[in-house]
Design a protein around this nucleic acid. Sequence first.
DNA 1: TGTACATCAGTGAACGCGCGTTCACTGATGTAC
DNA 2: TGTACATCAGTGAACGCGCGTTCACTGATGTAC
Lengths: 211, 211
Amino acid sequence: MRWTKHGDGTRGYHHGNLKEALMRAALELIREKGPAGFTFAEAARWAGVSPAAPYRHFRDRDELLASVALQGFERFAAMLTTAWNGGRPTPRQAFDQLGKAYLAFARTEPAYYSAMFEAGIPLHNNPELLAASERAFAVLRDATEALIAGMPAGKRPPVLMMALHIWALSHGIASLFGRGDAARRALPMSPEELLEAGVLLYLQGLGVAKN
Amino acid sequence: MRWTKHGDGTRGYHHGNLKEALMRAALELIREKGPAGFTFAEAARWAGVSPAAPYRHFRDRDELLASVALQGFERFAAMLTTAWNGGRPTPRQAFDQLGKAYLAFARTEPAYYSAMFEAGIPLHNNPELLAASERAFAVLRDATEALIAGMPAGKRPPVLMMALHIWALSHGIASLFGRGDAARRALPMSPEELLEAGVLLYLQGLGVAKN
DNA sequence: TGTACATCAGTGAACGCGCGTTCACTGATGTAC
DNA sequence: TGTACATCAGTGAACGCGCGTTCACTGATGTAC
């Protein structure tokens, strides 16, 4: 943050926070028109700078898009962590909160969500993005681990398998029915109810749905 | 199909099957560069016609993309129907085949899959596309219904709920781990194994995993 | 504290390019009689 | 069966436009002394 903002709302020669502004512009444009729906020039116009300015911060459009996805994974991880809340009041209840947070993110941040999961950004050759994506998944995996720890010794499933099942179910429901944009499919129940029932049945399948 | 193809491989003034050729071109380009990765002009070039020719068959790029998605849903429904095979040899076994077919489609036809589920085509003002999408889901719902019919009377879940759970789980696994393109995430097991285990646990949760 | 200088971040003009779209046209096909 | 005509499907040239990208530049900021 530079201190070039003037009292009257204008800015000086330097924008001060152009990188962040470009990412916000991209998000807004993605929300309106999908991950393909923005250009470098348009993002610059949105941020109120000349078309050459973005090149000081991003090599090209793809790098801007990847930065948005990266920030999305970071916020996603933070939101999931908050929802899990260290497994309080009980791991079982916190686990449901985690699921709700997953759906809430997809609904309230469709632009991040689509940059993260649908923009087709290759993860191999982008270690930073892959790591951020794994940090988000780690929240879910750790929560699953905590939940499993409370199960009877003979009935504990493999952590990774269970975490992947929960992730896939949440992701499927969010993608198909819980999106915040026009591609959402209608459903005779809320995505939250559908997910909660699915998780409940899954846990019953493991033989541990009681607590 | 017109009979204007010449023996030497050239074609006459009329292409004969341009609409289909443009859709194949779009598919190929989507596969290479994602749903946003093709232009009307490029598809025309691929099909070997002038840039004005596509306008005889599609109003614009979006209409071409929607046609591809429509055809995708039709093929998807056909593939699922074949896999279900009327519930033979047993509904339980046929159900696993259905799941495998879902994953197989996502892997072998990533271009269709992404046009159908990730291109952000709004369904609400495209009744034809919506109907095709529902025909595909109906295959899964009918299969679920047949599977439920074999369950003990007291343990039958609501058909729609169960079908949606299975759909979401399959779709989540396919989208995250089973795609045929560069955005696939690595996994220490096959998507098929993961889905099969998930369905098994889910059915156990319903209390009916035996047959 | 003041000054000189280096560095940084954005300007604005320019360019070539491919896209979307329109248009009058024309070659090929289908059909009425 | 032949002929005239209507219709269809693709041509190719043209246009305006916005994009991506480069460039020498310049205003603002940071820092050494």
